[in-house]
Write a protein that binds this DNA or RNA. Structure first.
Lengths: 322, 322
DNA sequence: CCCGTATTATAAGAAAAATTTATGCTGTCT
DNA sequence: AGACAGCATAAATTTTTCTTATAATACGGG
C-alpha cells in the first residue's frame, strides 16, 4: 500500500488524462497497453479518493463532468511539472550542477585555472575553488565541505568515491646547476647529506610520498626547511638547498631554464606522482566524467608542450592518463 | 504495477520529504508509521528511477546531495499543489462550482429568480439560466447541455439522477368570476364544453398532466388555444376562456384578485403538481442538497405567504416538501 | 423496434508491488 | 574497543494492481 495518504497518485492522473484524450476507457487501454478493466478500476478508485464523479458513463462517447473538467486542467499542469522536475534532475545528471566546490592542489592552480573557468562557465552555476593541500581536501570531501578534489589521491582506501586518473609525472632532484648530480643511491645519500634539504609539507601527499621514497632508500635526511607551496620550495632552492619535486610543481612555481637550478632524474626504482579527479559516487551524474575528459585534453594540448620544453629529459615519463 | 512510466510518484516524494525533515530514515519511519526498511527501499527505488543519489549515507545525520537539495524544493512545491488540487475538487464537492447551467420552468422564474441569484453568487462561478419547458430541459439535462432542472420531473424512469422534491400545489379551474363554477365531474364536462378551453403546451409536463387528468375523467375537450407560458394562458382567460392551471403559474403570470377571474377546486380525485430539483448523480457533491434546502426555505418564507393571500381556499393543499 | 457492435462494470484469480521481519553492516560516541 | 542507533539487504507476507471471464448498457443501422 502507498505509505502516504494522498488524494491521488500520478499514475491515476496519467490514466485519467489518457481517457480524456482518447474519448473512451477502451481506447485509453489500447494506448496504454493494458486491459480495459484496469482502466475502469483505476478511474473508479480515483473518483472514490476524490469523492466526485469525473466521467458521465451514460452517454457515448464519455463526457467529462464539471469536476472532471477541472481535474483535467490540474492534471495536465501537474504532469508537465513532473517532467520538468525529472528534466531538472537529469540536467544535473548530464553535467549541469548549480554549485560546485572544488579543492585543487596548489601545483595545478596555474596549469589549469584559466581553462577550468571556461569549462565550468556553461556547466556550473557557481564554482568555488579551494587551493590547498590534499590532506585538507580529503577531509573536506569526506565531510561534504567540498564536492570534488583534483590532486594526489589521498583516499585510496575509502569506498564510495569515483576516481578519474588525469596525469602522471616523475619526481626529480632539483639542485644548483654548478653541482655534479648524484648517479646512484649511495651518491644521492651523500649528496643530500652535503646540502640543505628543502621539503614539502608532511601534511601533503606529495611530501609524504617523498619521505616514504627516501626511507625505502634508507636515506635519512634531516630537512632544513618545509613549505606548503611549490613556490616556497623553489624560491628557497634558488638561494640555497636542494629538493625533490616534480615538473608540474616547478612549472607552477615559475621555473625557467637559466634560473641557476637543474633537474636530475632520481635513481630507480621509478617514482611517480599521480594526479586524480575524485568525487563522491553518483552525485553529479556524468559531470565528473566530462570534467576528467576535459582536463586530460587541456593537459595534453597546453601543459605537456610547455613541460616538454622545460624538462626535455623527462618527456617520456610524463603522461596524460585515461 | 503502476501503468504509467513516471520518474517518481507522489508517495515516494512524501517519503523523501519526511526523511529530509526528520533527519534520518528511522525517524521518518516512526513519523510515517511504517518500518525503517520500507523507507530505505522506497528511497533507493526513487534514486534508481531518477538516476542520482539523494542522500549521503556515509555521514550521520544523513546529508542531502546537491541533487537531493534540488529535488527537495521541487517536492515541496509539488505536494503543495496536490493539496491545492484536492482542495479545489473538494470545494466543488462542498458546493462551489465553476459554472452551472440550469433549466427553470417558466412558472418559477418570478418566484425564485431574485433569491436564486443571491444564493448562487457565492457558490457558482458562472450561472446560466434557461427558462422554458420541462421537455426541453429534460433533453438538455440528459445530453449534458444543462446541469440541473427545477420543474416538474419529466424523467421519473431515468436512472442516474438525483431528485430533491421542492413544492407541491393543486391544479385548479380558472374561470370568469361571474360564472357559476361546476361542482362535480358531470358539471365540469358540461362547463368545459360551453367555454373555450385554453391549454398549456403539450410539450410541457404540466400540459401533459392536465390532458391525462381530463382523459381519466372522460372529458374530451377540444382546446381553442395553447400557450407555452403561464402568462399567455392567464391573459387569454381574461379575454375569453377557461383553463386548468396552478397557483404558482397564476402567481407567475401576475394574477391579482379583482382581475375578473376566479379559481375553483377541481373535483376529486386530488390532482397535484410537484416541482423537483433534478441533477445528474454525484457531479456536484452536496451543492444540489444545499440548493434544494435553500429553495425550500425561500418557498416557505416568501412564496407561500403570497400564495396564501391570493389563493386562501388552497392553502391546505400547497406544501413545501422535504 | 430489434439486432449487432462497442464500451463499461464487476467478480474472481493471478501477478506484481510494497511492507514487514530478521539480521548483518556501518557510523558515531563514550 | 564496545555500545547504540541507523542503514541495507534477503526472504516472507500482505496489499495492490492487473487480467480473465462475463454481464449490463449505449448507440447506430436496418
Amino acid at each position: 500500500m502507498a505509505i502516504a495518504d494522498l488524494p491521488f497518485d500520478l499514475s491515476s492522473l496519467t490514466v485519467f488524462l489518457a481517457v480524456c484524450d482518447n474519448g473512451s476507457m477502451a481506447a485509453a487501454a489500447r494506448t496504454l497497453k493494458v486491459t480495459q478493466p484496469a482502466i475502469s478500476q483505476t478511474i473508479a478508485d480515483l473518483e472514490n479518493r476524490l469523492g466526485t464523479t469525473l466521467f458521465d458513463r451514460n452517454v457515448r462517447p464519455l463526457a467529462l463532468t464539471p469536476s472532471g473538467t477541472v481535474l483535467r486542467q490540474y492534471a495536465q499542469t501537474m504532469l508537465a511539472e513532473v517532467r520538468l522536475v525529472a528534466t531538472g534532475i537529469q540536467k544535473m545528471r548530464l553535467g549541469r550542477v548549480p554549485q560546485l566546490r572544488m579543492g585543487v592542489v596548489d601545483s595545478l592552480a596555474r596549469a589549469l585555472s584559466t581553462s577550468i573557468s571556461d569549462f565550468m562557465h556553461e556547466r556550473v552555476g557557481r564554482l568555488i575553488v579551494h587551493a590547498g593541500l590534499t590532506e585538507t581536501h580529503a577531509t573536506a570531501l569526506l565531510t561534504r565541505q567540498i564536492d570534488c578534489v583534483i590532486g594526489v589521491d589521498e583516499m585510496e582506501d575509502v569506498s564510495g568515491l569515483e576516481r578519474w586518473p588525469l596525469f602522471e609525472e616523475p619526481y626529480l632532484l632539483l639542485y644548483p646547476e654548478h653541482e655534479t648530480p648524484p648517479r646512484d643511491t649511495a651518491e644521492l645519500r651523500d649528496f643530500l647529506g652535503r646540502h640543505p634539504f628543502i621539503r614539502f609539507s608532511q601534511r601533503s601527499r606529495t611530501g609524504a610520498e617523498i619521505e616514504r621514497f627516501l626511507r625505502r632508500l634508507r636515506i635519512d635526511v634531516p630537512f632544513q626547511q618545509e613549505f606548503d607551496l611549490p613556490y616556497g620550495v623553489y624560491a628557497t632552492c634558488r638561494t640555497r638547498g636542494v629538493a625533490i619535486t616534480t615538473p608540474l610543481c616547478l612549472y607552477e612555481a615559475g621555473y625557467t631554464q637559466g634560473c641557476g637550478l637543474s633537474c636530475h632524474p632520481l635513481p630507480t626504482p621509478a617514482f611517480h606522482r599521480r594526479l586524480t579527479l575524485v568525487v563522491r559516487r553518483r552525485e553529479f551524474g556524468r559531470f565528473p566524467l566530462d570534467l576528467a575528459l576535459f582536463l586530460r585534453e587541456q593537459l595534453k594540448q597546453d601543459v605537456m608542450p610547455a613541460l616538454g620544453t622545460l624538462f626535455p629529459a623527462f618527456v617520456e615519463q610524463m603522461r596524460v592518463l585515461s
